[in-house]
Nucleic acid binder design. Structure first.
Length: 488
RNA sequence: GCGGGUGUAGCUCAGUGGUAGAGCGUCACGUUGCCAACGUGAAUGUCGUGAGUUCGAAUCUCAUCACCCGCUCCA
Protein backbone atom coordinates (compact mmCIF):
# COMPACT_ATOMS: atom_id res chain seq x y z
CA UNK A 1 0.00 0.00 0.00
CA UNK A 2 1.10 3.54 -0.48
CA UNK A 3 0.75 6.50 1.83
CA UNK A 4 -2.09 5.18 3.91
CA UNK A 5 0.06 5.65 6.95
CA UNK A 6 -2.75 6.48 9.31
CA UNK A 7 -6.23 5.33 10.03
CA UNK A 8 -7.50 8.82 9.24
CA UNK A 9 -6.29 8.42 5.67
CA UNK A 10 -8.32 5.24 5.34
CA UNK A 11 -11.41 6.82 6.87
CA UNK A 12 -11.06 9.76 4.51
CA UNK A 13 -10.69 7.51 1.48
CA UNK A 14 -13.73 5.47 2.51
CA UNK A 15 -15.85 8.57 2.91
CA UNK A 16 -14.62 10.32 -0.22
CA UNK A 17 -15.32 7.37 -2.46
CA UNK A 18 -18.55 6.24 -0.83
CA UNK A 19 -17.26 3.03 0.70
CA UNK A 20 -17.98 3.55 4.38
CA UNK A 21 -19.81 6.30 6.30
CA UNK A 22 -20.31 6.94 9.97
CA UNK A 23 -23.74 5.71 11.06
CA UNK A 24 -26.35 8.39 11.77
CA UNK A 25 -23.85 11.02 10.73
CA UNK A 26 -26.45 13.79 10.34
CA UNK A 27 -27.25 13.32 14.04
CA UNK A 28 -23.64 13.54 15.13
CA UNK A 29 -22.91 9.86 14.66
CA UNK A 30 -23.45 6.80 16.79
CA UNK A 31 -20.41 5.29 18.44
CA UNK A 32 -19.00 2.17 16.87
CA UNK A 33 -21.57 1.96 14.08
CA UNK A 34 -20.83 2.35 10.39
CA UNK A 35 -22.73 2.23 7.11
CA UNK A 36 -21.52 0.88 3.77
CA UNK A 37 -22.06 3.29 0.89
CA UNK A 38 -22.72 2.49 -2.78
CA UNK A 39 -19.22 1.20 -3.52
CA UNK A 40 -18.80 -0.30 -0.05
CA UNK A 41 -21.85 -2.50 -0.21
CA UNK A 42 -20.71 -3.90 -3.57
CA UNK A 43 -17.27 -4.61 -2.16
CA UNK A 44 -18.58 -6.19 1.02
CA UNK A 45 -21.11 -8.30 -0.88
CA UNK A 46 -18.31 -9.48 -3.14
CA UNK A 47 -16.22 -10.43 -0.12
CA UNK A 48 -19.10 -12.48 1.23
CA UNK A 49 -19.71 -14.09 -2.17
CA UNK A 50 -16.05 -14.99 -2.47
CA UNK A 51 -16.04 -16.53 1.01
CA UNK A 52 -19.21 -18.50 0.34
CA UNK A 53 -17.87 -19.80 -2.95
CA UNK A 54 -14.56 -20.80 -1.42
CA UNK A 55 -15.95 -22.39 1.75
CA UNK A 56 -19.32 -23.78 0.64
CA UNK A 57 -19.53 -24.20 -3.13
CA UNK A 58 -16.00 -25.44 -3.68
CA UNK A 59 -16.40 -28.27 -1.17
CA UNK A 60 -18.71 -31.23 -1.64
CA UNK A 61 -19.05 -31.66 2.08
CA UNK A 62 -19.91 -28.14 3.21
CA UNK A 63 -23.46 -26.81 3.26
CA UNK A 64 -24.87 -23.41 4.13
CA UNK A 65 -27.23 -22.05 6.73
CA UNK A 66 -28.85 -18.74 7.58
CA UNK A 67 -30.40 -18.77 11.01
CA UNK A 68 -32.10 -16.11 13.09
CA UNK A 69 -30.17 -13.64 15.20
CA UNK A 70 -32.54 -14.15 18.11
CA UNK A 71 -32.44 -17.62 19.61
CA UNK A 72 -33.79 -19.47 22.60
CA UNK A 73 -32.10 -18.10 25.75
CA UNK A 74 -30.98 -21.58 26.74
CA UNK A 75 -28.69 -21.57 23.71
CA UNK A 76 -26.59 -18.99 25.52
CA UNK A 77 -26.89 -20.73 28.84
CA UNK A 78 -25.56 -23.92 27.27
CA UNK A 79 -22.86 -22.24 25.22
CA UNK A 80 -21.56 -20.54 28.34
CA UNK A 81 -22.08 -17.01 27.07
CA UNK A 82 -24.90 -16.13 29.49
CA UNK A 83 -22.76 -16.95 32.51
CA UNK A 84 -19.25 -16.49 31.34
CA UNK A 85 -19.11 -14.10 28.46
CA UNK A 86 -17.75 -11.24 30.48
CA UNK A 87 -14.39 -9.85 31.43
CA UNK A 88 -13.42 -9.04 34.99
CA UNK A 89 -11.91 -5.61 35.17
CA UNK A 90 -10.57 -3.46 37.99
CA UNK A 91 -9.79 0.21 37.83
CA UNK A 92 -6.72 1.76 39.39
CA UNK A 93 -7.85 4.60 41.63
CA UNK A 94 -4.60 6.48 41.11
CA UNK A 95 -4.44 6.65 37.33
CA UNK A 96 -7.97 5.48 36.34
CA UNK A 97 -6.57 2.76 34.11
CA UNK A 98 -8.78 -0.25 33.64
CA UNK A 99 -7.02 -3.54 33.60
CA UNK A 100 -8.23 -7.09 33.36
CA UNK A 101 -7.72 -8.61 36.78
CA UNK A 102 -5.71 -11.49 35.38
CA UNK A 103 -3.40 -9.02 33.69
CA UNK A 104 -2.38 -7.46 37.00
CA UNK A 105 1.16 -8.28 37.90
CA UNK A 106 1.88 -11.05 40.40
CA UNK A 107 -1.50 -12.43 39.73
CA UNK A 108 -1.02 -14.93 36.94
CA UNK A 109 -2.27 -17.90 38.92
CA UNK A 110 -5.90 -16.83 38.76
CA UNK A 111 -7.55 -17.04 35.36
CA UNK A 112 -10.32 -14.46 35.12
CA UNK A 113 -11.05 -14.28 31.45
CA UNK A 114 -14.63 -15.30 30.77
CA UNK A 115 -15.59 -15.49 34.40
CA UNK A 116 -18.80 -16.70 35.94
CA UNK A 117 -20.69 -13.48 36.53
CA UNK A 118 -22.70 -14.53 39.55
CA UNK A 119 -19.78 -16.12 41.30
CA UNK A 120 -17.57 -13.14 40.66
CA UNK A 121 -20.15 -10.67 41.89
CA UNK A 122 -20.49 -12.59 45.12
CA UNK A 123 -16.80 -13.21 45.59
CA UNK A 124 -14.45 -10.80 47.23
CA UNK A 125 -11.20 -10.12 45.51
CA UNK A 126 -8.03 -9.43 47.36
CA UNK A 127 -6.12 -7.03 45.16
CA UNK A 128 -4.12 -5.54 48.02
CA UNK A 129 -0.82 -6.86 46.73
CA UNK A 130 -1.47 -6.31 43.04
CA UNK A 131 0.45 -3.77 41.00
CA UNK A 132 -1.05 -1.37 38.51
CA UNK A 133 0.77 -1.91 35.19
CA UNK A 134 0.35 1.76 34.31
CA UNK A 135 1.37 3.76 37.34
CA UNK A 136 2.90 1.12 39.58
CA UNK A 137 0.68 1.80 42.58
CA UNK A 138 0.02 -1.25 44.71
CA UNK A 139 -3.39 -2.34 45.95
CA UNK A 140 -5.22 0.81 44.97
CA UNK A 141 -8.03 -0.70 42.92
CA UNK A 142 -11.78 -0.49 42.69
CA UNK A 143 -13.78 -3.62 43.34
CA UNK A 144 -13.48 -5.71 40.17
CA UNK A 145 -16.48 -5.43 37.86
CA UNK A 146 -17.60 -7.91 35.24
CA UNK A 147 -18.70 -6.50 31.90
CA UNK A 148 -21.59 -8.25 30.21
CA UNK A 149 -20.71 -8.51 26.57
CA UNK A 150 -24.09 -9.67 25.24
CA UNK A 151 -26.78 -7.24 24.07
CA UNK A 152 -30.16 -7.85 25.64
CA UNK A 153 -33.51 -7.16 24.04
CA UNK A 154 -37.14 -7.95 24.69
CA UNK A 155 -39.40 -10.18 22.62
CA UNK A 156 -43.10 -9.40 22.84
CA UNK A 157 -44.72 -5.98 22.81
CA UNK A 158 -46.60 -6.57 26.03
CA UNK A 159 -44.24 -5.60 28.84
CA UNK A 160 -45.78 -8.05 31.30
CA UNK A 161 -45.13 -11.23 29.36
CA UNK A 162 -42.18 -10.23 27.24
CA UNK A 163 -39.08 -12.37 27.35
CA UNK A 164 -35.49 -11.19 27.59
CA UNK A 165 -33.46 -12.41 24.65
CA UNK A 166 -29.89 -11.89 23.55
CA UNK A 167 -28.60 -10.67 20.25
CA UNK A 168 -26.20 -13.42 19.25
CA UNK A 169 -22.55 -12.71 20.07
CA UNK A 170 -21.48 -15.25 17.45
CA UNK A 171 -23.16 -17.05 14.57
CA UNK A 172 -21.60 -20.38 15.54
CA UNK A 173 -24.23 -21.35 18.09
CA UNK A 174 -26.97 -21.18 15.48
CA UNK A 175 -25.02 -23.78 13.55
CA UNK A 176 -24.68 -26.09 16.56
CA UNK A 177 -28.38 -25.66 17.26
CA UNK A 178 -29.13 -26.81 13.71
CA UNK A 179 -26.61 -29.65 13.63
CA UNK A 180 -29.37 -32.25 14.03
CA UNK A 181 -31.59 -30.61 11.41
CA UNK A 182 -28.85 -30.69 8.83
CA UNK A 183 -27.88 -34.29 9.63
CA UNK A 184 -31.51 -35.39 9.35
CA UNK A 185 -32.32 -33.61 6.11
CA UNK A 186 -29.28 -33.42 3.86
CA UNK A 187 -27.55 -36.82 3.74
CA UNK A 188 -24.27 -35.24 4.78
CA UNK A 189 -21.76 -37.62 6.30
CA UNK A 190 -18.93 -36.84 8.62
CA UNK A 191 -16.60 -35.12 7.95
CA UNK A 192 -18.74 -32.19 6.83
CA UNK A 193 -19.18 -28.51 7.49
CA UNK A 194 -22.02 -26.02 7.99
CA UNK A 195 -21.31 -22.43 7.03
CA UNK A 196 -23.07 -19.19 7.81
CA UNK A 197 -22.58 -15.46 7.24
CA UNK A 198 -24.39 -12.96 9.42
CA UNK A 199 -24.44 -10.17 11.94
CA UNK A 200 -23.29 -10.61 15.52
CA UNK A 201 -23.31 -8.22 18.45
CA UNK A 202 -20.93 -7.72 21.35
CA UNK A 203 -20.99 -4.99 23.93
CA UNK A 204 -17.26 -4.42 23.78
CA UNK A 205 -15.79 -2.56 26.72
CA UNK A 206 -14.01 -0.34 24.28
CA UNK A 207 -14.54 0.02 20.57
CA UNK A 208 -12.01 1.53 18.29
CA UNK A 209 -10.15 1.67 15.05
CA UNK A 210 -12.94 2.46 12.58
CA UNK A 211 -14.78 -0.67 11.43
CA UNK A 212 -12.12 -2.89 12.97
CA UNK A 213 -13.80 -3.38 16.33
CA UNK A 214 -17.48 -2.52 16.36
CA UNK A 215 -20.34 -3.67 18.55
CA UNK A 216 -22.35 -4.76 15.52
CA UNK A 217 -20.34 -6.76 13.02
CA UNK A 218 -20.61 -9.43 10.41
CA UNK A 219 -19.06 -12.85 10.70
CA UNK A 220 -18.44 -15.66 8.26
CA UNK A 221 -18.16 -18.86 10.23
CA UNK A 222 -17.99 -22.52 9.37
CA UNK A 223 -18.24 -25.39 11.82
CA UNK A 224 -16.53 -28.45 10.39
CA UNK A 225 -17.64 -31.64 12.12
CA UNK A 226 -15.19 -34.52 12.13
CA UNK A 227 -14.35 -37.71 13.97
CA UNK A 228 -12.30 -37.28 17.14
CA UNK A 229 -8.72 -38.13 16.31
CA UNK A 230 -8.94 -36.62 12.84
CA UNK A 231 -9.45 -33.13 14.20
CA UNK A 232 -5.80 -32.10 14.16
CA UNK A 233 -5.46 -32.89 10.47
CA UNK A 234 -8.60 -30.97 9.61
CA UNK A 235 -7.36 -28.08 11.71
CA UNK A 236 -4.26 -27.90 9.54
CA UNK A 237 -6.34 -28.29 6.38
CA UNK A 238 -8.66 -25.37 7.11
CA UNK A 239 -5.86 -23.26 8.44
CA UNK A 240 -4.14 -23.48 5.09
CA UNK A 241 -7.37 -23.06 3.10
CA UNK A 242 -8.27 -19.92 4.90
CA UNK A 243 -4.86 -18.32 4.68
CA UNK A 244 -4.72 -18.95 0.94
CA UNK A 245 -8.15 -17.41 0.45
CA UNK A 246 -6.79 -14.01 1.40
CA UNK A 247 -3.69 -14.19 -0.77
CA UNK A 248 -5.62 -15.55 -3.75
CA UNK A 249 -7.88 -12.50 -3.53
CA UNK A 250 -4.92 -10.21 -3.69
CA UNK A 251 -3.72 -9.59 -0.14
CA UNK A 252 0.04 -9.20 -0.27
CA UNK A 253 1.81 -12.08 1.46
CA UNK A 254 4.06 -9.69 3.36
CA UNK A 255 1.00 -8.23 5.05
CA UNK A 256 -0.48 -11.52 6.23
CA UNK A 257 0.65 -14.00 8.87
CA UNK A 258 -0.45 -16.69 11.29
CA UNK A 259 -0.25 -16.21 15.01
CA UNK A 260 -0.76 -19.22 17.25
CA UNK A 261 -2.55 -18.66 20.53
CA UNK A 262 -0.64 -19.46 23.66
CA UNK A 263 -2.22 -22.25 25.71
CA UNK A 264 -3.27 -19.82 28.47
CA UNK A 265 -4.81 -17.51 25.87
CA UNK A 266 -7.24 -20.13 24.57
CA UNK A 267 -10.97 -19.72 25.11
CA UNK A 268 -12.62 -22.17 27.50
CA UNK A 269 -13.89 -24.33 24.62
CA UNK A 270 -10.78 -24.46 22.45
CA UNK A 271 -8.02 -27.01 22.18
CA UNK A 272 -6.03 -24.95 19.68
CA UNK A 273 -6.45 -21.63 17.94
CA UNK A 274 -4.57 -19.65 15.36
CA UNK A 275 -5.22 -16.15 14.11
CA UNK A 276 -4.81 -14.92 10.57
CA UNK A 277 -3.44 -11.44 11.03
CA UNK A 278 -3.16 -8.51 8.64
CA UNK A 279 -0.65 -5.72 8.94
CA UNK A 280 -2.99 -2.74 9.12
CA UNK A 281 -1.43 0.72 8.96
CA UNK A 282 -2.85 1.62 12.36
CA UNK A 283 -2.99 0.52 15.96
CA UNK A 284 -0.31 -0.24 18.45
CA UNK A 285 1.21 -3.34 16.95
CA UNK A 286 0.12 -3.05 13.32
CA UNK A 287 -0.75 -6.75 13.11
CA UNK A 288 -4.45 -7.20 13.70
CA UNK A 289 -6.65 -10.26 13.58
CA UNK A 290 -8.86 -10.95 10.58
CA UNK A 291 -9.87 -14.48 11.38
CA UNK A 292 -9.47 -17.18 13.98
CA UNK A 293 -9.26 -20.88 13.20
CA UNK A 294 -10.08 -22.89 16.32
CA UNK A 295 -10.37 -26.49 17.37
CA UNK A 296 -13.54 -26.34 19.48
CA UNK A 297 -13.44 -30.06 20.24
CA UNK A 298 -16.82 -31.61 21.15
CA UNK A 299 -17.46 -28.89 23.70
CA UNK A 300 -20.40 -27.14 22.07
CA UNK A 301 -22.47 -30.16 21.05
CA UNK A 302 -22.00 -31.68 24.49
CA UNK A 303 -23.03 -28.42 26.11
CA UNK A 304 -26.20 -28.28 24.01
CA UNK A 305 -27.07 -31.81 25.05
CA UNK A 306 -26.88 -30.51 28.61
CA UNK A 307 -28.97 -27.52 27.59
CA UNK A 308 -31.68 -29.77 26.13
CA UNK A 309 -31.84 -31.63 29.45
CA UNK A 310 -32.26 -28.29 31.26
CA UNK A 311 -35.41 -27.22 29.43
CA UNK A 312 -37.80 -28.33 32.19
CA UNK A 313 -36.09 -26.35 34.92
CA UNK A 314 -36.15 -23.36 32.65
CA UNK A 315 -39.94 -23.66 32.41
CA UNK A 316 -40.18 -24.18 36.15
CA UNK A 317 -38.22 -21.00 36.80
CA UNK A 318 -40.40 -19.12 34.29
CA UNK A 319 -37.49 -18.48 31.99
CA UNK A 320 -35.19 -16.88 34.54
CA UNK A 321 -31.74 -17.97 33.42
CA UNK A 322 -30.11 -16.79 36.61
CA UNK A 323 -32.20 -19.22 38.66
CA UNK A 324 -31.20 -22.37 36.83
CA UNK A 325 -28.14 -24.50 36.52
CA UNK A 326 -27.22 -26.45 33.47
CA UNK A 327 -28.00 -30.13 34.01
CA UNK A 328 -25.07 -32.51 34.20
CA UNK A 329 -24.11 -34.56 31.23
CA UNK A 330 -25.61 -38.01 30.85
CA UNK A 331 -23.11 -40.77 31.50
CA UNK A 332 -23.54 -42.06 27.98
CA UNK A 333 -23.41 -38.60 26.47
CA UNK A 334 -21.75 -40.12 23.42
CA UNK A 335 -25.12 -41.61 22.50
CA UNK A 336 -27.03 -38.38 23.13
CA UNK A 337 -29.40 -36.53 20.78
CA UNK A 338 -26.58 -34.56 19.17
CA UNK A 339 -24.37 -37.57 18.56
CA UNK A 340 -23.56 -38.94 15.13
CA UNK A 341 -23.85 -42.54 14.00
CA UNK A 342 -21.17 -43.74 11.63
CA UNK A 343 -22.85 -46.39 9.47
CA UNK A 344 -19.58 -47.81 8.19
CA UNK A 345 -17.88 -48.24 11.53
CA UNK A 346 -21.16 -48.87 13.36
CA UNK A 347 -20.02 -46.34 15.90
CA UNK A 348 -21.76 -43.44 17.66
CA UNK A 349 -19.86 -40.39 18.84
CA UNK A 350 -19.95 -36.62 19.40
CA UNK A 351 -17.99 -35.01 16.56
CA UNK A 352 -15.10 -32.67 17.08
CA UNK A 353 -15.38 -29.24 15.47
CA UNK A 354 -12.88 -27.15 13.55
CA UNK A 355 -14.05 -23.56 13.21
CA UNK A 356 -12.70 -20.93 10.83
CA UNK A 357 -14.31 -17.69 11.97
CA UNK A 358 -13.70 -14.64 9.83
CA UNK A 359 -14.65 -11.00 10.34
CA UNK A 360 -16.28 -9.77 7.13
CA UNK A 361 -15.97 -6.10 8.02
CA UNK A 362 -12.34 -6.60 8.93
CA UNK A 363 -11.41 -8.43 5.77
CA UNK A 364 -13.35 -5.92 3.67
CA UNK A 365 -11.26 -3.18 5.26
CA UNK A 366 -8.08 -5.17 4.71
CA UNK A 367 -8.89 -5.74 1.03
CA UNK A 368 -9.54 -2.04 0.65
CA UNK A 369 -6.36 -0.95 2.38
CA UNK A 370 -4.23 -3.54 0.62
CA UNK A 371 -5.57 -2.58 -2.80
CA UNK A 372 -4.82 1.11 -2.36
CA UNK A 373 -1.94 2.40 -4.44
CA UNK A 374 -0.46 5.61 -5.71
CA UNK A 375 1.89 5.94 -8.64
CA UNK A 376 3.54 8.68 -10.65
CA UNK A 377 2.29 9.07 -14.21
CA UNK A 378 3.81 11.91 -16.22
CA UNK A 379 4.43 13.92 -13.09
CA UNK A 380 0.91 13.41 -11.79
CA UNK A 381 -0.13 11.10 -9.00
CA UNK A 382 -2.47 8.34 -10.04
CA UNK A 383 -4.59 6.94 -7.19
CA UNK A 384 -6.04 3.53 -7.72
CA UNK A 385 -7.49 0.52 -5.98
CA UNK A 386 -6.00 -2.67 -7.34
CA UNK A 387 -8.90 -4.93 -6.36
CA UNK A 388 -8.98 -8.52 -7.46
CA UNK A 389 -11.65 -8.67 -10.20
CA UNK A 390 -13.88 -10.81 -8.01
CA UNK A 391 -13.95 -8.07 -5.38
CA UNK A 392 -14.11 -4.97 -7.57
CA UNK A 393 -17.42 -3.13 -6.96
CA UNK A 394 -17.69 -2.29 -10.66
CA UNK A 395 -16.23 -4.71 -13.18
CA UNK A 396 -16.40 -2.61 -16.33
CA UNK A 397 -16.98 1.03 -17.28
CA UNK A 398 -18.12 2.04 -20.78
CA UNK A 399 -17.41 5.44 -22.35
CA UNK A 400 -17.96 7.19 -25.64
CA UNK A 401 -14.69 8.91 -26.48
CA UNK A 402 -16.65 12.10 -27.15
CA UNK A 403 -20.34 12.72 -26.93
CA UNK A 404 -21.11 13.09 -30.62
CA UNK A 405 -21.14 11.12 -33.88
CA UNK A 406 -23.43 8.52 -32.35
CA UNK A 407 -20.77 7.27 -29.96
CA UNK A 408 -22.97 7.64 -26.83
CA UNK A 409 -25.68 5.42 -28.35
CA UNK A 410 -23.23 2.66 -29.20
CA UNK A 411 -21.63 2.88 -25.77
CA UNK A 412 -25.01 2.82 -24.06
CA UNK A 413 -25.97 -0.34 -25.91
CA UNK A 414 -22.72 -2.08 -25.06
CA UNK A 415 -23.16 -1.15 -21.39
CA UNK A 416 -26.74 -2.37 -21.36
CA UNK A 417 -25.72 -5.71 -22.86
CA UNK A 418 -22.81 -6.22 -20.45
CA UNK A 419 -24.96 -5.41 -17.41
CA UNK A 420 -26.60 -8.81 -17.84
CA UNK A 421 -23.33 -10.43 -16.82
CA UNK A 422 -21.57 -8.12 -14.40
CA UNK A 423 -21.69 -4.69 -12.80
CA UNK A 424 -21.18 -2.11 -15.48
CA UNK A 425 -21.01 1.67 -15.34
CA UNK A 426 -21.65 4.23 -18.10
CA UNK A 427 -19.96 7.65 -18.11
CA UNK A 428 -19.74 10.34 -20.77
CA UNK A 429 -18.92 13.36 -18.61
CA UNK A 430 -15.62 15.16 -19.04
CA UNK A 431 -12.37 14.31 -20.73
CA UNK A 432 -11.58 10.68 -21.37
CA UNK A 433 -8.47 10.75 -19.16
CA UNK A 434 -10.48 12.00 -16.23
CA UNK A 435 -13.00 9.23 -16.67
CA UNK A 436 -10.22 6.63 -16.66
CA UNK A 437 -8.81 8.04 -13.45
CA UNK A 438 -12.22 8.11 -11.77
CA UNK A 439 -12.56 4.41 -12.43
CA UNK A 440 -9.04 3.79 -11.15
CA UNK A 441 -10.09 5.25 -7.83
CA UNK A 442 -13.13 3.00 -7.67
CA UNK A 443 -10.99 0.00 -8.57
CA UNK A 444 -12.77 -0.85 -11.83
CA UNK A 445 -10.58 -3.38 -13.67
CA UNK A 446 -11.54 -2.44 -17.25
CA UNK A 447 -12.71 0.58 -19.19
CA UNK A 448 -14.22 0.26 -22.65
CA UNK A 449 -14.13 3.21 -25.02
CA UNK A 450 -16.20 3.64 -28.15
CA UNK A 451 -14.30 5.82 -30.67
CA UNK A 452 -14.47 6.85 -34.33
CA UNK A 453 -13.11 3.51 -35.47
CA UNK A 454 -15.93 1.62 -33.79
CA UNK A 455 -18.41 2.51 -36.52
CA UNK A 456 -15.97 1.38 -39.21
CA UNK A 457 -14.83 -2.00 -37.92
CA UNK A 458 -16.94 -2.75 -34.84
CA UNK A 459 -14.02 -2.65 -32.42
CA UNK A 460 -13.62 -0.82 -29.13
CA UNK A 461 -10.64 -0.20 -26.90
CA UNK A 462 -10.34 -2.08 -23.61
CA UNK A 463 -8.14 -0.32 -21.13
CA UNK A 464 -6.54 -2.22 -18.25
CA UNK A 465 -6.60 -0.57 -14.84
CA UNK A 466 -3.25 -1.79 -13.59
CA UNK A 467 -1.10 -1.34 -16.69
CA UNK A 468 -3.17 1.41 -18.37
CA UNK A 469 -2.58 -0.49 -21.61
CA UNK A 470 -5.24 -0.59 -24.29
CA UNK A 471 -6.30 -3.29 -26.69
CA UNK A 472 -8.73 -3.19 -29.57
CA UNK A 473 -11.37 -5.85 -29.22
CA UNK A 474 -14.20 -6.64 -31.59
CA UNK A 475 -17.60 -6.02 -30.01
CA UNK A 476 -18.62 -9.63 -30.83
CA UNK A 477 -15.69 -10.86 -28.80
CA UNK A 478 -16.03 -8.31 -26.01
CA UNK A 479 -18.10 -10.39 -23.59
CA UNK A 480 -15.86 -13.44 -23.87
CA UNK A 481 -12.76 -11.33 -23.64
CA UNK A 482 -13.94 -9.66 -20.43
CA UNK A 483 -15.25 -12.84 -18.84
CA UNK A 484 -11.93 -14.48 -19.45
CA UNK A 485 -10.01 -11.60 -17.93
CA UNK A 486 -12.40 -11.21 -15.02
CA UNK A 487 -12.54 -14.96 -14.42
CA UNK A 488 -16.33 -14.83 -14.31
C1' G B 1 -14.62 4.62 31.52
C1' C B 2 -9.60 7.39 32.18
C1' G B 3 -5.43 10.32 29.98
C1' G B 4 -3.90 13.01 25.47
C1' G B 5 -5.52 15.09 20.68
C1' U B 6 -9.24 16.55 17.01
C1' G B 7 -14.13 18.44 15.00
C1' U B 8 -15.07 24.86 9.59
C1' A B 9 -18.03 22.86 2.05
C1' G B 10 -18.08 15.90 -0.37
C1' C B 11 -12.34 15.64 0.82
C1' U B 12 -7.73 18.35 2.64
C1' C B 13 -7.29 22.55 5.36
C1' A B 14 -6.81 28.35 6.29
C1' G B 15 -9.47 31.63 9.33
C1' U B 16 -8.17 33.19 17.28
C1' G B 17 -13.93 38.45 19.15
C1' G B 18 -16.33 42.37 14.02
C1' U B 19 -20.01 40.53 6.67
C1' A B 20 -17.46 32.31 6.50
C1' G B 21 -12.58 31.30 2.68
C1' A B 22 -8.96 28.42 -0.62
C1' G B 23 -7.36 24.05 -3.27
C1' C B 24 -9.25 19.60 -5.02
C1' G B 25 -13.85 17.33 -6.15
C1' U B 26 -19.12 17.90 -8.06
C1' C B 27 -22.64 20.04 -11.81
C1' A B 28 -23.84 22.88 -16.55
C1' C B 29 -22.40 24.88 -21.34
C1' G B 30 -18.60 25.27 -24.96
C1' U B 31 -14.28 22.99 -26.59
C1' U B 32 -11.98 18.23 -26.76
C1' G B 33 -10.34 12.24 -30.82
C1' C B 34 -7.15 8.15 -25.25
C1' C B 35 -4.97 9.05 -19.52
C1' A B 36 -6.91 13.98 -13.33
C1' A B 37 -6.49 19.21 -20.61
C1' C B 38 -8.73 24.22 -21.42
C1' G B 39 -12.42 28.28 -21.13
C1' U B 40 -16.88 30.26 -18.93
C1' G B 41 -20.41 29.76 -15.31
C1' A B 42 -22.87 27.38 -10.97
C1' A B 43 -24.26 24.81 -6.55
C1' U B 44 -22.99 23.29 -1.64
C1' G B 45 -21.80 25.36 5.31
C1' U B 46 -27.15 24.17 11.83
C1' C B 47 -18.31 26.46 11.61
C1' G B 48 -20.25 18.62 15.55
C1' U B 49 -24.55 19.81 19.13
C1' G B 50 -26.52 22.73 23.35
C1' A B 51 -25.99 26.47 26.86
C1' G B 52 -23.17 30.68 28.86
C1' U B 53 -20.01 35.38 28.61
C1' U B 54 -20.30 39.64 25.17
C1' C B 55 -23.12 45.15 21.74
C1' G B 56 -21.25 41.05 18.74
C1' A B 57 -18.73 34.04 19.17
C1' A B 58 -16.15 29.53 14.05
C1' U B 59 -12.92 32.22 17.66
C1' C B 60 -13.61 32.76 24.98
C1' U B 61 -16.13 29.36 29.05
C1' C B 62 -18.97 24.99 30.40
C1' A B 63 -21.56 20.66 29.08
C1' U B 64 -22.47 17.01 25.53
C1' C B 65 -21.74 13.92 21.00
C1' A B 66 -18.38 11.71 17.60
C1' C B 67 -13.56 10.37 15.84
C1' C B 68 -8.11 9.47 16.52
C1' C B 69 -3.71 7.80 19.86
C1' G B 70 -2.85 4.98 24.52
C1' C B 71 -4.94 1.44 28.47
C1' U B 72 -8.25 -2.76 27.16
C1' C B 73 -10.17 -6.32 23.69
C1' C B 74 -10.51 -9.83 19.69
C1' A B 75 -14.26 -11.77 14.50
Amino acid sequence: MANLAKLEDIVSLCKRRGFIFQSSEIYGGLASCYDYGPLGVELKNNVKKAWWKSVVHMHDNVVGLDCSILMHPLVWKASGHADKFADLIAECKSCNTRTRVDHLQNHAEEHTEHVNIDVELAATHDLSNKVCPKCGKVGNFTEPMPFKLMFETQMGANVDDSMTLYLRPETAQGIFANFKNVIDTTRVKIPFGIAQIGKSFRNEVTTKAFTFRTREFEQAEMEFFCEPGTDENWYEFWKEQRFNWYTELGIKKDNLRFRDHDPDELAHYAKACVDVEYKFPFGSGDWQELEGVANRTDFDLRQHQRGMRTLNSWYEQKGDLTQIQLKDEAEDYNKGPLSYFDEQAKKRFIPYVIEPSAGIDRSTLAFLVDAYDEEEVKGETRNLLRFHPALAPTKVAVFPLVKKDGMPDIAHNICKELKKYFTCFYDQAGAIGRRYRRQDEAGTPFCITVDGQTKEDNTVTVRDRDSMEQKRVSTDQLLNYLRDKLEI
